[in-house]
Structures are given as C-alpha cells and as structure tokens.
C-alpha cells in the first residue's frame, strides 16, 4: 500500500495479473494485438493510459523508471506520469536512459542503444495499422488473421505513384517477425530502425482501444517498402546547437517571429550526456548579435 492507501501501482493485484497475462500472450505472438480489460486510470484516455497500465503491471519496488514524451523527461505529461508512479509505487526514477529498468515513452525511442533486460513501454493511441484503410474492427481482425495485407501495399504504392514518396512520416507500418503488420506508435520514421532486433523488450499499450502488443528482444521489425523505393529516415543539414550531435533526431525550435530557428536534440538525456562529455554545438543564432546589427 502507498501513503494514499492505494495498492502498489494503483491497480489491484487481480487486474495487474490480467494485464500480465495479456503481455505474455503478446510476447508469445509478436505484433499481435491482444484485447484486454483496460481500466479507467486517473489520467485521461489518449494521455498514456495503456502505457501506464503496462508499467503498473510490470513494475516492482526494485525498478528504476524513466518517463519521456517527445524524447524529453521534462515535458508536462512525462512529468505527470512520473509523479503518478512515484506516488503510487514510491520507486526510483531517473532521466538516464542507461540507468532505467523501465522506460515509458510517447513518440520517441531513446538515441542510446537499449540493453538486454530493459523494458521499453510505448503509449499507443491507435493500435490498428489498417485503421485508416478500414474503420471496422471486425474487418481488420479478419484481415490480420488471413494475413490479407494487400491494401497496405496498395496504399504505399499509391503514395509513391501520386506523391513520388511514401507520405507517412511517423507511425510507419512495420512487419513483425515476418507475420503481423504492426503500428510502432507515433514515433518518427527516424526511430523505426531502432526497433529491429532491439535487445530490450518492447511493450505497447493502447488503453482506450483496449489492446496490448509486444515485440520480444531480438525480433525482426521491418518497415514496409519496395525494392526500388527503399525505406528512408529523416536527415538534417544542421547539427544539434547544444551538443553538436549529427546523428540524433532534432527538434526545430522557433526563436522569434522573424523565422529564426535552431535545432536541438529531441532526446534530452542524450544531449545532456554529450555536453557532460565535453561536446559543444555552435549555440545557434545569437540574439545579441542580431540586435547589434
């Protein structure tokens, strides 16, 4: 029991057991969406309730938790979720990717390569990769069962023939373990290759849609593409203005109403570690210089 009188992890033990069973089924069938009795949580649907329920079901007193949103530990929703677990579990938290045993994330995979034994928990808004092509759940479940994925390839092909490229920028569909097409949650394309044969366990929770799915360690996760139009990721001409990194996902920060901008690492821990190791960026445009002009 916590100080507030709630059970460890907020959920009662029976509910946690039910969620763990769903997780185990998900791990046994990589990429398959397992329906589960998702509960109302004290945070709103769409704000990470699926991820929170997974974390609540797998976390123990010895765990160290890291929570990120858009790659950063200090975004408001990440702060709120981290505070929730501190209150409900009294566990240790960290901003260091390397030190965390569980990392709950929204929209990013950390830049640092994850290690065996770590668990990455994704918050998923819409778990069904075929949803924009077929709104009915009864249909899409059939399509998965029959491996009837033609519509998805046609969609990608049409993108290329009409727009010259696949226009999906994030939540890019992947094939897991050669069997199920899966939504990786709204991570940028940039992060998709990190999922392939990742050493950490990847768990996905969609609370409102009541689905859990998983990618066990070292599982094949391949973005859908064509031989003559291979999958590509975002690249930047700039380096991070703070740490000088050229290999990380960069956020574009607008500095003023004249359109001046700078680019900084979206992964705040990655950026911080590099700066501590002595790396420096160019600091971005200097507003004082501009004022002097």
């Amino acid at each position: 029991m916590t100080a507030d009188g709630y059970n460890f992890g907020y959920l009662d033990e029976q509910t946690k057991r039910m969620i763990r069973r769903a997780i185990l089924k998900g791990v046994a069938i990589p990429g398959y969406q397992v329906p589960f009795g998702s509960r109302e949580m004290p945070l709103p649907y769409g704000w990470g309730t699926g991820g929170i329920q997974i974390t609540a079901a797998v976390i123990g007193p010895g765990d160290t938790l890291k929570v990120i949103d858009q790659g950063a530990d200090d975004t408001t929703n990440a702060v709120s979720i981290r505070n929730f677990f501190v209150r409900m579990c009294d566990v240790a938290t960290t901003e260091r990717t390397a030190e965390a045993s569980i990392i709950q994330t929204r929209h990013r995979i950390p830049e640092r390569k994850l290690a065996p034994g770590q668990i990455l928990v994704y918050q998923v808004p819409i778990p069904e990769p075929l949803r924009w092509l077929e709104p009915r759940e009864t249909e899409t479940r059939k399509m998965h069962a029959l491996r009837e994925y033609g519509v998805m390839h046609v969609k990608l092909y049409e993108d290329i023939s009409v727009k010259g490229r696949v226009s999906t920028a994030y939540d890019y569909p992947v094939l897991v373990n050669g069997r199920y097409i899966m939504r990786p949650s709204p991570i940028p394309k940039f992060d998709t290759p990190k999922m392939h044969r990742m050493a950490a366990l990847q768990l996905f929770g969609a609370g409102r849609e009541k689905r859990i799915y998983a990618v066990p360690p070292y599982t094949d996760v391949v973005p859908l593409d064509f031989e003559d139009h291979p999958f590509t990721i975002e690249t930047w001409d700039q380096a991070c203005a703070l740490c000088g990194a050229t290999t990380s996902f960069l956020d574009e920060v607008i500095l003023d109403d004249r359109g001046r901008r700078m680019f900084v690492c979206s992964d705040t821990d990655f950026c911080q570690e590099r700066r501590e190791a002595g790396h420096r960026g160019d600091g971005g445009p200097n507003p004082l210089e501009e004022a002097a002009e």
Partner: peptide, 23 residues
C-alpha cells in the same frame, strides 16, 4: 471518458511527429 480524453490529448506536445511531417 474515452472521447473526452482522446479529443483533448491533442493538447499534448506533438512536435516530434510534426517535425517528421515538416520533412
């Protein structure tokens, strides 16, 4: 409860996805 949460989650930061769309 489901509808209100999901509609209002649009208030959460989406700048990483938006950056990808910009690209």
């Amino acid at each position: 409860v489901e509808a209100s949460g999901f509609v209002q989650h649009l208030k959460l930061p989406h700048h990483v996805d938006f950056q990808s769309e910009l690209h």
